[in-house]
């Protein structure tokens, strides 16, 4: 199959047939990558819902050079040969992204100071980049009481942006799904039917895929702000999963265990609940070394690192 050519923000890239605009942008990397609140490359059928990744297609293809009439969801639109995409260079896209951010925050409690997700929250990042400085609304927000779905996961529905990722994890990674979306519109909620408990070996991954603080780890609840913990890559022999994790430590104590996330905040591999919740002693793990964290992240705050020798040399050249 010949490769397809497209340009995103005037940067040319070649991708294989069947690639989405989002993944083509990720191939380029950097600022041209649209934000994604619901798309998750490891979950089949995800994306298309949050509308933060909408981009403008100013030329459909070489064959049909008309622009697409509406903004399209880059995570679900396939690349055509000769497509011209505008992301950050289109004022229309930026304006809409600002509006979508406003919509997502409309019913969000903004309780970051007491939310365990703060510091690694995608909605925080999105509103930092695209949010308004002032609020347009003084409407009452929808509220739900936080509930326990099983022993290990806390559901705080007020924070949920209904990305459906946790539903897809339950469908695709675990052997049965006992939770889902109930109701519709802005009164719909993620819940289990009649206080059913989410209880299976891979349910903990729902915490990792949640872009906000709606699903949090009960074993880590209120223990520490994430940026006061130090992440280490570690592994153990595990019969159920790959056993490759990140340990979030304070001194010698392991406060929580998560899967390893790439720069888009997506898990590299899903891990089992034993690795995540049971083995919390340093002796259970082979520690590989400090986890590289994106420098822009809040978590890298106060973690000064010596720059690599190569990077130093680059600096000198500049």
């Amino acid at each position: 199959m010949p490769l397809l050519k497209l340009t995103i923000d005037n940067i040319e890239v070649e991708v294989e047939q069947g690639t989405t605009i989002m993944n083509a942008a990720r191939k380029i990397g950097g600022h041209v990558v649209p934000p994604a609140m619901c798309y998750y490359s490891k979950l089949e059928g995800s994306g298309g819902k949050c509308r933060t990744c909408l981009v403008k297609v100013s030329q459909g293809s070489f064959k049909d050079n008309r622009p697409m009439p509406k903004l399209v969801a880059s995570c679900r639109t396939l690349v055509q040969d000769g497509m011209v995409v505008q992301n950050t260079i289109s004022p229309e896209v930026i304006e809409n992204r600002r509006a979508i951010t406003e919509f997502l925050l409309l019913n969000h409690p903004l309780d970051c100071p007491v939310c365990d997700q703060a510091g690694e929250c995608h909605l925080q990042d999105l509103s930092y980049q695209n949010g308004l400085e002032e609020t347009n609304t003084d409407e009452a927000r929808r509220t739900f009481a936080p509930i326990d779905i099983g022993d290990l996961i806390k559901l705080n529905m007020n924070r949920c942006i209904l990305c459906y990722r946790c539903v897809m994890v339950a469908d695709q990674i675990t052997d049965s799904r006992v939770h889902g979306v109930l109701g519709r519109g802005d009164h719909s909620e993620i819940s289990t039917l009649i206080q059913n408990a989410v209880d299976n070996d891979f349910s903990g991954n729902m915490i990792d895929v949640c872009p906000v603080g709606a699903l949090t780890d009960k074993t880590f609840r209120f223990k520490s702000r994430v940026w006061f913990t130090r992440p280490f890559d570690a592994h153990r022999e595990c019969a159920k999963c790959c056993g490759k994790t990140v340990l979030w430590m304070k001194g010698e104590e392991i406060l929580r265990v998560t899967g390893r996330k790439d720069k888009y905040g997506e898990l590299e591999e899903f891990i089992c609940n034993d690795c995540r919740f049971v083995f919390k002693q340093p002796k259970d793990w082979t520690i590989e070394g400090p986890r590289k964290i994106e420098r822009h992240s809040v978590i890298s705050q106060n973690h000064y690192e010596k720059l690599d020798k190569d990077e130093n040399e680059d600096k000198n050249v500049e």
């Binding site: 298309g48 819902k49 949050c50 509308r51 933060t52 509006a99 979508i100 919509f103 997502l104 409309l106 019913n107 942006i161 209904l162 459906y164 979306v181 109701g183 519709r184 519109g185 802005d186 009164h187 719909s188």
Partner: peptide
Amino acid sequence: GQCSPCRE
């Protein structure tokens, strides 16, 4: 309630 502009 699937996509955010309409839901909110």
